[in-house]
């Protein structure tokens, strides 16, 4: 690997930090799996409204989903620029990724507020509890990613990001893409599939 110049010997040839990140992401999978499972177990089990169909706005969230997916594209560009030692492009793409992520979070804040005004709260019903917990923790992951991206951008401005330290960007990228993929699962399940549920319905097999 071109950017593995300073890497010490490892048994498998894999970098320590990269391996750590992959295993951590495996761990995080189980975290989201448990939250998603909670949501699916409680699908249609709310005793009082509002129910998904009353408030879920698929078109709006489709836009924010698109924005988040585009941020993954920007992230790929940032890593490519880093490997090419193109400092200016690196910083710009890192900031672009952070910006797209922030727009997604902005959408989420607006969404949460709208839902709250329409009566969906943590304590109101099971739908609210499991919806806010799942998407809230996802949002927290995105926020952490934005902070990480901004920190990298600052390091870039100080000239500390280049093809030799590209692993710093790559790790952030792994995390960022993972969080995006989780969102695709959440969007599919919570919006496209369960988003049109009306009232407490019997779920097949449930």
């Amino acid at each position: 690997m071109a950017h593995a110049v300073e890497q010490e010997y490892t048994t498998t040839g894999l970098n320590h930090r990269k391996l750590l990140m992959w295993v951590f992401l495996g761990s995080d999978c189980l975290f989201f799996a448990s939250l998603i499972a909670t949501y699916m177990v409680y699908r249609g089990q709310s005793l009082v409204g509002p129910y998904p169909n009353d408030i879920i706005d698929v078109p709006v969230t489709t836009i924010s989903t698109f924005v988040l997916l585009m941020s993954s594209f920007a992230m790929v560009q940032a890593l490519a620029a880093t490997n090419a030692d193109n400092r200016k492009a690196t910083i710009n793409w890192l900031l672009a990724t952070a910006l797209l992520g922030s727009i997604f979070i902005g959408f989420q804040i607006v969404e949460f507020n709208t839902f709250k005004n329409e009566g969906l709260t943590l304590g109101g019903n099971l739908f609210g509890a499991s919806f806010f917990t799942l998407t809230g923790f996802h949002g927290a992951h995105v926020t952490l990613g934005i902070i990480w991206l901004l920190a990298l951008a600052i390091l870039g401005m100080k000239g500390r990001i280049n093809s030799k330290t590209a692993l710093d960007v790559e790790l952030c990228g792994l995390y960022w893409h993972f969080v995006d993929i989780v969102w695709i699962v959440i969007f599919t399940l919570l919006y496209l599939i369960a988003g049109f549920d009306v009232g407490p319905v019997a779920i097949p097999g449930g």
Partner: peptide
């Protein structure tokens, strides 16, 4: 925080 994940009375 007022959720009812494990409270049967609320489903």
């Amino acid at each position: 925080f007022g959720t009812h994940f494990f409270i049967p009375a609320e489903g």
